[in-house]
Amino acid sequence: MAAGGDHGSPDSYRSPLASRYASPEMCFVFSDRYKFRTWRQLWLWLAEAEQTLGLPITDEQIQEMKSNLENIDFKMAAEEEKRLRHDVMAHVHTFGHCCPKAAGIIHLGATSCYVGDNTDLIILRNALDLLLPKLARVISRLADFAKERASLPTLGFTHFQPAQLTTVGKRCCLWIQDLCMDLQNLKRVRDDLRFRGVKGTTGTQASFLQLFEGDDHKVEQLDKMVTEKAGFKRAFIITGQTYTRKVDIEVLSVLASLGASVHKICTDIRLLANLKEMEEPFEKQQIGSSAMPYKRNPMRSERCCSLARHLMTLVMDPLQTASVQWFERTLDDSANRRICLAEAFLTADTILNTLQNISEGLVVYPKVIERRIRQELPFMATENIIMAMVKAGGSRQDCHEKIRVLSQQAASVVKQEGGDNDLIERIQVDAYFSPIHSQLDHLLDPSSFTGRASQQVQRFLEEEVYPLLKPYESVMKVKAELCL
């Protein structure tokens, strides 16, 4: 049975990233139509530049190519590739079939990587351009969430054990800070992308030097003109047959890092959902379990974690691919890159769409948070109580021993009897502590235990987050809708 299948058929496997999760716009960027249309555009740009620099290419040939950029006979191309065992030459023939007058000058002087690699770089750039505003929107939604809850005390956790208090907004800023680093890295790697350009079979530009009869300047002009037509500021000066596969490492490393950030955020949300302090959106008709109707599973956060793990592992592909590119190139890269580049971007696209949807509907339960604080705060307040007693004339050592005994009794009630923490009640009825009984409410005010959390939130948002989001103001209103 021949390899390949009808990918629109229910009898043929289709990647869930495309069929179930990723956005239509990201799927289109990695589609065959987008790819092969870009090949034709690159052939047109090459012909236009070659004509401008004096090669015998007519206006009629150029116009014929322009008129057929979208006229792609995919069936013919597939048949040609089956016959020739070469995808680029299959599309040269297919393009030439609908451009008979231009057929002889299509791909003039070029090698397969002229269309293959340059198209990949265009796709990487455009895919990054799709991700950047999506990530900015996630940051914006979380920034709104953090600002609104900047002063809401909550129990902090280290080692997932109760620690000092923080605020809900401050905790959210930990998430935002990681995503801001990801946004900066995505922008950097996007701006650092260079075009492969017009380089020939081993990167020496020998074929173009021959076409222009040894004119170095025209060869350099050709490279520059096509690079500018493709919208790049610069091209690699040095290439082998391909652009260095280190570029793929750079791009997928940034995406993998984004995956790590999203995994951490969504894990926190899942843990908070278990504590009943916070939940992701839950639709009115949504079913959490087929057997347990009360369940409210954090399905979206779980999906993000599941896909983020996949995204983090994909960076190993370009690392290994770059390491086995012998001399000017081997074909070890080809099949692998067809999979890992598309999957990385479709996965990143999915987790950003999902995280935006989550961040637009996060639900906080202040009463649950308050109750958990009441359970733990008495123990945390013991040092403040000791200091207040010393100020009232008591002995630190005597007070410490009193607190120690009462704390152990209260802990026994919590752990052995399943009761509430009654340390404060014990202190309130103990005559030894009568000098500070009137101060206990103040000493137990949760806001006095959150330090500068709310001020940190305000400063972080104003100095770091809002300036970073400013270039994306025009796209901030787009909502994230999930079908599944």
Rank of each mutant, 00 (worst) to 15 (best):
V315G: 07
D73I: 05
Q61K: 07
H93K: 14
T154G: 04
F157R: 06
M26Q: 04
A102Y: 04
L186E: 04
R196S: 13
F74L: 14
V390R: 01
A344D: 04
M380C: 04
S448F: 10
D191C: 09
I106Y: 02
V219Q: 05
F460T: 05
L406W: 06
Q51Y: 07
L108I: 11
S112L: 00
S306D: 02
G214N: 13
V363Y: 06
E417M: 10
F212P: 04
P10R: 14
Y466H: 12
Y114G: 05
K218E: 12
F232Y: 07
T111P: 03
V198C: 15
N357D: 09
H217A: 10
K246D: 00
A127Y: 00
L272Y: 06
T267H: 08
L271Y: 04
F95T: 08
R270L: 00
P318K: 01
A388C: 08
E417R: 10
R149G: 08
C483R: 14
A431T: 12
G419L: 14
R270K: 02
D182C: 01
M225S: 09
M292I: 01
M292H: 02
E228W: 13
F30P: 00
D398Q: 15
E302W: 01
V168K: 02
T166M: 09
E81I: 00
M387G: 14
D144P: 12
K391Y: 13
G203C: 01
E60S: 11
A127V: 06
L142K: 07
M292A: 01
G394H: 06
W39P: 00
G4V: 15
Q164V: 12
W43N: 03
R40F: 00
E401R: 14
R149C: 11
N297F: 00
F95W: 12
I403S: 05
L271S: 03
D87H: 05
P435L: 08
G214P: 09
V478F: 10
A392C: 11
I385R: 01
S474E: 15
D445P: 04
F327E: 06
R372V: 03
F449R: 06
Q51L: 07
T52I: 09
L423A: 04
Q210G: 12
P446Y: 04
V262C: 13
H86V: 00
A47K: 04
L482S: 09
D178C: 06
L255R: 02
R149W: 13
T158C: 03
Q164W: 00
A136L: 14
P56V: 11
S334C: 05
A102L: 07
K233C: 12
Q409E: 09
L128W: 05
L142T: 13
V364M: 07
Y294V: 02
E376S: 01
L423I: 08
A411Q: 15
A342D: 14
L319V: 07
R270E: 00
M181H: 10
G116N: 13
G104A: 12
I424C: 14
L131E: 14
M299V: 10
V413Y: 11
Q320H: 07
D398G: 12
W39Q: 14
T111D: 00
T38Q: 06
V88S: 08
M316S: 11
E401D: 10
T154I: 10
L69A: 08
H7G: 05
L121C: 13
A392Q: 10
Q286L: 01
F327C: 10
R338F: 00
L352S: 07
V247A: 12
A206I: 06
E481T: 14
K218F: 08
D422C: 09
F433K: 03
L423W: 04
I237H: 09
Y472T: 13
S290Y: 03
L482P: 14
D120G: 06
D32T: 12
Y13P: 12
I369Q: 07
T119L: 10
G5I: 14
R296Y: 06
S395Y: 06
G259S: 11
D398A: 12
E228Q: 09
K415S: 06
E25G: 12
A381E: 08
I373Q: 00
H217W: 13
M389H: 06
K218Y: 15
S447E: 12
L124F: 06
T350V: 14
S323V: 03
S19T: 00
S407I: 01
A103Q: 13
D332Q: 00
Q439D: 15
T204F: 00
Y21W: 15
M89Y: 07
N274V: 08
C99I: 09
E462Y: 10
K284F: 13
D192M: 14
P162W: 07
V324W: 10
A47I: 01
G288Q: 02
Q409R: 12
C305L: 02
M181A: 10
V390H: 07
A49N: 03
R137D: 07
N274H: 15
T201S: 05
M65I: 11
C173T: 09
T201C: 06
L174A: 12
G156W: 00
D317G: 11
E464R: 04
C173R: 02
L44G: 07
R426D: 09
E481D: 14
R459H: 10
Q210D: 15
N118G: 10
H86G: 01
E343L: 04
Q210H: 11
S253K: 04
E220P: 01
Q439S: 08
T94K: 09
N297D: 02
E360M: 06
F236T: 07
S334V: 01
A291F: 04
D120W: 06
L352E: 05
E60V: 10
D192H: 09
A308D: 01
L314W: 07
V115K: 02
V138P: 04
L183V: 13
I427V: 12
S447N: 14
V138H: 11
L174N: 15
R309K: 07
P56M: 08
I176Y: 03
D332P: 03
E228L: 08
R296S: 07
A308H: 03
G8M: 15
I386F: 03
E360I: 06
L275N: 08
M225Q: 13
E401H: 13
K264N: 01
T330R: 02
V429C: 13
V189W: 06
L44P: 00
Y466P: 06
C98M: 09
E383Y: 04
A453N: 15
